[in-house]
Design a protein around this nucleic acid. Structure first.
Ligand SMILES: [Mn+2]
Ligand SMILES: [Mn+2]
Ligand SMILES: [Zn+2]
Ligand SMILES: [Zn+2]
Lengths: 138, 138
DNA sequence: AGAATTAATGCACTTCCGTTGCATACTTAA
DNA sequence: TTAAGTATGCAACGGAAGTGCATTAATTCT
């Protein structure tokens, strides 16, 4: 927990009790979390506080927001040393239609593409949908 | 207009006046349209009717819904002979951060990818973000 | 044609998620 | 210890998607 504290501080985020808990919660998860997920795990805490915690994390490159096409924002910890702004760090996300979980495939980068003349991309989102590893082995 | 009528019928959709107009509206556009866009163009028509028109079109493979990450669903006509269910028909979408328009890059398909063991994809969404051709030439 | 059936439209209302305003509590720095 | 800055709690708002139901229009059947 002291490590988390140091980590948050290194990112310029004050390590409040709530923030430490939310960070730990995200670290202990394999799948990306929605605000509702977080909310459900901390019934004592306020929605808004958790919302702002996630936003703060996002602004300071502690988590990245994931749009998996469900219409609900999800959040997952960034990779170590990740700068979410740089295209080269962009990885795939996989949304399972069975368990409804979304995971980062951090080792699978979005492939570079040639675009039509005049189109200049500086960001990308790629989500694959289907059956995840957990669900496919049953 | 008679052609549109025949086309809708060939897709199993009854060609009502409203549907003909909405189809024409989409056909005359280059960029994908939100429900609000359609609404704004037909101030006399009801939101719900337009909403259901788009849904009907989508269910009958006349349009496809696009999730470009803005959080607002957009719709564009399907390519001729398109079966939206088949992965091979999936194409890229490009969202311009300047003019805020999203266009189909129908000739640019989502590249096939090797996924980690156990992951089985049957659908995909890929959106590139940046400056579109129109906006980059000014 | 006229009645019965089915489909489309209009209107009101709801739900869900994200977001903001503002008062209070807490923390840090002078 | 006082002042300034930051985080939290509570309430309310907003946009977009979606639903229920009555009304109107189009089809089908007799
Ligand atoms: Mn990720
Ligand atoms: Mn498209
Ligand atoms: Zn799964
Ligand atoms: Zn543009």
């Amino acid at each position: 927990m002291a490590q988390i504290e140091d980590f948050l501080e290194s990112k310029g985020v004050r390590p409040t009790a709530m923030r430490l808990l939310v960070f730990k919660y995200l670290a202990d998860r394999q799948a990306a979390a929605t605000l509702s997920d977080v909310e459900a795990s901390f019934s004592k805490a306020e929605r808004t506080t958790l919302y702002r915690t996630l936003k703060t994390f996002e602004e300071n490159s502690i988590v990245h927001q994931i749009d998996d096409g469900t219409g609900i924002s999800k959040y997952a910890l960034c990779e170590e040393g990740c700068n979410c702004d740089l295209e080269r760090h962009l990885h795939l996300h996989f949304h399972c239609n069975k368990c409804d979980e979304t995971v980062c495939l951090t080792d699978y980068k979005i492939p570079p593409l040639n675009l039509p003349k005049g189109f200049i991309a500086n960001d990308a989102n790629m989500v694959l949908k289907g059956i995840c590893d957990k669900c496919s082995q049953n």
